[in-house]
Amino acid sequence: MHTPAPLAVLGLVALATTAIVCGDTAGKLLTEAGVRPLFVAWSRFALAALLLAWSLGLRRSNLRDLLDWRLILRAALIVGGIGSIMTALRTEPIANVFGAFFIGPVVAYALSALLLRERVSWARTAMLALGFGGVLLVVRPGGEMGTGMLFALMAGGFYGSYLTATRWLAPFHPPSFLLASQLVIGAILLLPAGLAGIPASADLRIWTLLIVNSLASAFGNYLLVVVNRTTPATVSAPLIYFQLIAATLIGFLVFGDWPEPLALVGLAVIFASGLGGLALVPRSQTP
């Protein structure tokens, strides 16, 4: 298997992460409007499953595959990640949440090396360590760290594990089925919380935000599945840091939030580590 050119991988990851940030921005707007975070998370899975599962190749003939414990584990990881980040976004600025969330690439890198035996290098490890230092500047453990930031760190841990599980299962299933499986299984896992959190009333704005929250995230995650099918997680993990650009800009444009100086330094350090990781990606690599 050959890794695509770094710029091609970067383009896909940048588009994917921007779409995911747009979905999470819609989710934050929903929670600020009083919609419960777990209902937002459930609606993301349920609406996307209803609209996309059939077109993604889910058929009666392969429904039995959804009982595969590996697919259920992968879906549970992304459910935990989305539920945690929706909870974090309820009280924290979006850029800060994504700064803490970027513990995920470190988790993905470590798990891919330990469990999937993917190759690592001292240089790439140093870049991720630099990124972890940036996360600490954003989170400031022991200082002004609130409950929302704890949920953001949890989301990053879940998401890094999910990225590793995606890389693990990518050789066995096409990207479309992997996405369809996480949407359907995720909707089922969150069904009790979703039903308990249905808003008493929902206007056109709420429904529009629910659709954006669902479809933008599904599109972004589909692109990441495509990337993980052809690119080792130890290569693609640092590129996820480009999500910070979208999170910072959209957070400012939509919510008027601009990171505090120390947090901004941390975000810059995280982004620099992503650039360093990109510079280490060879033109082709055989995992």
Rank of each mutant, 00 (worst) to 15 (best):
H2I: 06
H2K: 05
T3L: 12
P4H: 10
A5P: 12
P6M: 07
G11I: 04
L12N: 00
L15N: 02
A16R: 00
T17S: 06
A19F: 11
V21Q: 02
L29T: 06
L30R: 00
E32M: 07
V35I: 15
W42S: 03
S43V: 01
S43P: 00
R44G: 04
R44Y: 09
F45E: 08
L50T: 03
L51D: 00
G57T: 00
G57H: 00
R60D: 12
L63F: 05
L66W: 01
L71F: 01
I72P: 06
I72G: 03
I78S: 04
L89V: 00
L89M: 02
N96K: 01
A108L: 09
Y109E: 07
L111P: 04
A113K: 00
A113T: 00
L115Q: 05
L116M: 02
E118N: 05
W122F: 14
R124D: 14
L128C: 01
A129K: 08
L130D: 03
G131N: 03
G133T: 08
L137F: 05
P141V: 14
G142A: 08
G142N: 08
M145E: 01
G148Y: 04
L150D: 02
L153T: 13
F158N: 06
G160Y: 07
Y162E: 07
L163M: 15
W168Y: 11
W168S: 11
L169R: 13
A170K: 10
P171D: 14
P175M: 07
L178W: 10
L179N: 10
A180S: 10
A180K: 10
S181P: 12
S181V: 10
S181E: 13
Q182L: 12
L183G: 09
V184I: 01
A187Q: 10
P192W: 09
G194T: 07
G197T: 11
I198D: 11
A200N: 08
A200D: 12
D203F: 09
D203I: 07
L204E: 14
L204M: 14
T208S: 14
T208M: 14
T208E: 07
L210A: 07
L210G: 04
V212Q: 07
V212D: 02
V212H: 07
S214Q: 11
S217F: 15
A218I: 03
F219G: 08
N221G: 07
N221I: 13
Y222D: 03
L223C: 12
L224P: 03
V225K: 09
R229N: 10
T230S: 15
T231Q: 02
P232A: 08
P232F: 02
T234H: 08
T234L: 10
V235L: 15
S236C: 04
A237N: 04
A237F: 02
A237C: 02
I240S: 14
I245F: 11
I245K: 03
A246F: 04
T248A: 11
L249P: 00
F252T: 09
V254E: 05
G256F: 13
G256H: 13
W258P: 02
E260T: 08
P261K: 02
A263Q: 12
L264Q: 06
L267F: 05
V269G: 11
S273P: 12
G274E: 12
G276I: 07
A279M: 13
A279S: 14
L280S: 09
P282K: 03
R283L: 15
S284T: 15
T286C: 06
P287E: 15
P287Y: 11
P287W: 11
P287L: 14
